[in-house]
Amino acid sequence: MPNEPRPALIHARALTKRFGEMTAVDAIDFDVAPGEAFGFLGPNGAGKTSTMRMIGCVSPRSGGTLEVLGMDPDHDGPAIRARLGVIPQQDTLDMELTVQENLWIYARYFDLSYAEARERSKELLEFVQLQDRAKDEVQNLSGGMKRRLTIARGLINEPDLMLLDEPTTGLDPQARHLLWDRLYRLKQRGVTLVLTTHFMDEAEQLCDRLVVMDKATIVAQGSPRQLIERYATREVLELRFPQGVQETLNGKLDGLADRIEHLPDRLLLYTPDGDAAAAAVHDRGLAPESVLVRRSTLEDVFLRLTGRTLIE
């Protein structure tokens, strides 16, 4: 049957994780197709990492079904993990070993021979641009280098599926862009990527499809473009007023936009045409200190869906 869709690499229905009384993941459904880059977006504590750990077979699920690579994590953990590449939130490198030794021993965990381990680690160090540091001790590497080494380590078994938990958190812009580039190349090679992030630009850059998680459930899913169309307008008008004026604007902006958001320091007007809205503001005799028209981003979607309160 040629028209039947290729089976999902990850298939989750009513997937649930509880820690005692606390429900970290509450009956979520999702599928990840081969070759796609799939993102979990959400504030801290939304349940992203718990979901990733269940997929990585290091956290038994409390309920629902979960299939990874067509197998059940509860029974086939080692067989599934043999085909996964995992990039944890915090680097778990062996600080006492050198860069290449980290790759070699990790290769051994996957039952590669030393000859294979050497060959592959050489390729991978070039891939992540660490070939000059092969013999350095890991503790002397910068944060970005450690992260790249962790990526190389996750690739040592030529995984079908990569799990990346906040891959670029804490990196400087150069290091982030280098990492994105490498991840993009992996995707082109057909590696399926599943990542969590709370950087909207990262999600827009990398993900074909994403789900937004909040308070243990999935609140929206789709491609970045679809989500923006569905939950935001085409453009956003940002207005900043002199101190104390914003509070006196009650009602004066009504009808100028689809939706108005009051932030402590500025107002956001969601509208299909930002310039027209800006002109209308001036027509009503208001004089904001600064006016900015921009396209909507995932960040607007994210903040609308998960609220603006700080979640720790």
Binding site: V58, T92, D94, R153
Partner: peptide, 14 residues
């Protein structure tokens, strides 16, 4: 601290 075992557990080792 080193989380050595967390890294080990993302491989076929149990």
């Amino acid at each position: 601290f080193a989380k050595t075992y967390d890294a080990v557990l993302s491989t076929p080792l149990g």
